[in-house]
């Protein structure tokens, strides 16, 4: 078959699968948040409330598309598209099973970090293009946060790379299935690195408890202040996409990916990713928001030094015990 056609079909299949999983993720979060707050959540669309997310999309599509008169139209209109594209780009290198992987790059981990670094641009384009104080303040906070938390993220991702001796995600998963999952052994490196990775990933994507860029009590809605309809919907979707893909990457790097005690395969990956997503939403609905300076202090005083210690520890472990 034509390789472009094959690539398109394969990539399209993965994108469609992840997008569809978002419906379930949204439903789970709504119901979970409702139970945690002694509510029952959406019930009007159907008894389970499962059709709430499609109904929301229909609603967003009907909304008037408002563009502020003094906005920078090119940046304002393209920012949501860019944001969603960058958010889903990470899925390309994630090995969902031994055979389902978009592009098993030799530099897979580097690719993920590079795509994460790109995420700054749509945020800035949205904040600056809106020509709104709140949006710009939100964008500046988001960029400062992303740039700072990239450092511990890179350090945490280096630990599995050093232990497995490869930047290829499928190699890292293969190493874990032939040895141990990294959170099992060496757990004194694996568990802290896993925690650090999740924290930095959450902060880089501006999720609670690190969502000061859109702190609604101070900044209206941050970068999404001026956005209406499906443009807002795209930002919203990008956030959920980022959470799902970050969880999938974390399960591949630290939790053994598609490896499992019985019948390794896609369903282990789905299970692990799902559990991590639930854990993230659990945190989201339990914790309060940090202050901006607390966030920076946490990053530079605690996470970066511990990341350095972990990387050195991983190197020592490989040389003397691996």
């Amino acid at each position: 078959m034509n390789e472009f056609l094959q690539g398109g079909l394969y990539g399209g299949g993965i994108i469609v699968a992840i997008m569809s999983s978002l419906l379930f993720v949204l439903w789970t979060e709504r119901k979970m948040a409702a139970r945690m707050q002694s509510r029952i959540g959406p019930t009007f669309t159907d008894p389970l409330g499962f059709l709430q997310a499609p109904a929301d999309v229909l609603k967003l599509l009907q909304k008037e598309d408002i563009i502020p008169e003094k906005a920078d139209r090119a940046l304002f209109n393209n920012a949501p598209l860019l944001g969603a594209t960058v958010a889903i780009a990470g899925a390309a290198v994630v090995p969902f099973s031994a055979t389902i992987v978009g592009a098993d790059l030799e530099v897979g981990v580097l690719y993920l970090l590079a795509v994460g670094a790109l995420g700054v641009l749509p945020v800035f384009a949205a904040g600056w293009g809106s020509n709104n104080k709140f949006a710009l303040l939100g964008a500046m906070r988001a960029i400062a946060q992303s740039v700072s938390y990239e450092v511990p993220l890179v350090l945490a991702a280096l630990v599995p790379v050093i232990l497995a001796g490869s930047m290829k995600l499928s190699d890292i998963v293969a190493y874990q299935s032939s040895h141990h999952w990294l959170v099992v052994w060496p757990f004194f490196l694996g568990i802290p690195a896993f925690g650090l990775f999740m924290l930095a990933m959450l902060a880089e994507s501006n999720r609670i408890p690190f969502d000061i860029p859109e702190a609604e009590s101070e900044l209206v809605a941050g970068i999404t202040t001026e956005y209406t309809g499906m443009k807002f919907g795209l930002f919203y979707m990008a956030e959920y996409l980022h959470t799902v893909i970050a969880s999938a990457v974390a399960s591949a790097l630290f939790l053994g990916g598609y490896d499992g005690p019985i019948a390794p395969g896609l369903w282990w990956m789905v299970l692990k990713t799902g559990l991590l997503v639930v854990a993230i939403y659990w945190l989201r609905w339990s914790l309060l928001r940090f202050r901006s300076d607390q966030l920076m202090a946490l990053c530079w005083r605690w996470l970066v030094p511990s990341g350095v210690v972990l990387v050195v520890g991983a190197a020592v472990w490989v040389v003397f015990a691996g």
Binding site: L110, A114, A117, L118, V120, V147
Partner: peptide, 10 residues
Amino acid sequence: GVQVLTYVGG
């Protein structure tokens, strides 16, 4: 990858 990470991201 390094080009994107350092130049575009940084």
